[in-house]
């Protein structure tokens, strides 16, 4: 343990040298918005909602992948950050097809909560409406790429917690899609163990069990971290 002192929003705070800004903020009850972060799995800095301002740097840095340094002066919220958070969330809406009224995750969706929290009433950007498939080949679950926000939480939970690595990301830019195996239908995957962890990791309604309807998808994302902690204890 190497304790250092940093400054967050004008308050002096003690932190461990190896921690990320996000971890320190969560420990000290300082609010940071996140979407692609999930306790128990690694961070990739994909959603850009946790951006913070660091004194001496012109760029905003993602709190989830930036490590604390001695005497770092961090601002977690200001007008600039709020503006970017709004833009990011609106772009998430505009990129694919998010219609809460018909979504299984209605009322239990992190994107919906985020939109309400940031008081977004309109999407200022044209919707892209890309040609996305819906994979219903798995006997128990459905994957709807129209609702995916590419946070890659399912990919990381499958790789790191379940160890199956059924999911990954193909392509780049607008063409990115979550794929199972060799872009084979989910039901024909040779690696999927049908454990359902990706379903609990998904922040939106992109993965859900068959035979449920609008607003009925209730998830237990905390289960992933509990599982990781329990496995550590078993060692």
């Amino acid at each position: 343990m190497n304790i250092i002192e940093i400054n967050i929003n004008g308050n002096a705070i003690k932190a461990d040298a190896g921690q990320t800004i996000l971890e320190v903020c969560r420990q000290n009850d300082i609010e940071i918005l996140t979407m692609c972060h999930m306790d128990g799995i690694s961070d990739v800095g994909a959603c850009r909602l946790c951006l913070v301002q660091i004194e001496g740097s012109n760029k905003l840095m993602p709190a989830c992948t930036t490590k604390v340094m001695p005497n770092m002066a961090i601002t977690t919220t200001n007008e600039r950050i709020k503006k970017y958070q709004k833009i990011t969330t609106e772009l998430l809406h505009a990129e694919r097809n998010h219609t809460c009224a018909v979504c299984v995750a209605n009322g239990h969706c992190e994107l919906q909560d985020m939109t309400a929290k940031l008081e977004i009433t309109h999407i200022r950007y044209p919707h892209l409406f890309p040609d996305c498939d819906m994979d219903t080949s798995h006997p128990w679950y459905i994957m709807d790429h129209n609702r995916c926000i590419m946070c890659t939480r399912c990919v990381r939970v499958c790789k790191e917690v379940e160890g199956a690595h059924n999911w990954d990301v193909m392509g780049r830019g607008h063409e990115v899609r979550i794929i199972s195996d060799y872009h084979t239908p989910w039901g024909e995957s040779e690696t999927c163990t049908s454990c359902g962890k990706c379903l609990h990791a998904c922040p939106v309604g992109a993965i859900w069990p068959k035979a449920i309807s609008q607003g009925q998808l209730v998830k237990n994302p905390g289960m992933i971290n509990d599982l990781v902690e329990k496995r550590k204890m078993n060692l």
Binding site: A164, H165, N166, D168, G171, D181, Y182, H183, T184
Partner: peptide, 12 residues
């Protein structure tokens, strides 16, 4: 290697 990793590299 997991198939999805191979395919993602090829398409990237």
């Amino acid at each position: 290697l997991p198939g999805s990793r191979v395919y993602s590299t090829v398409t990237f």
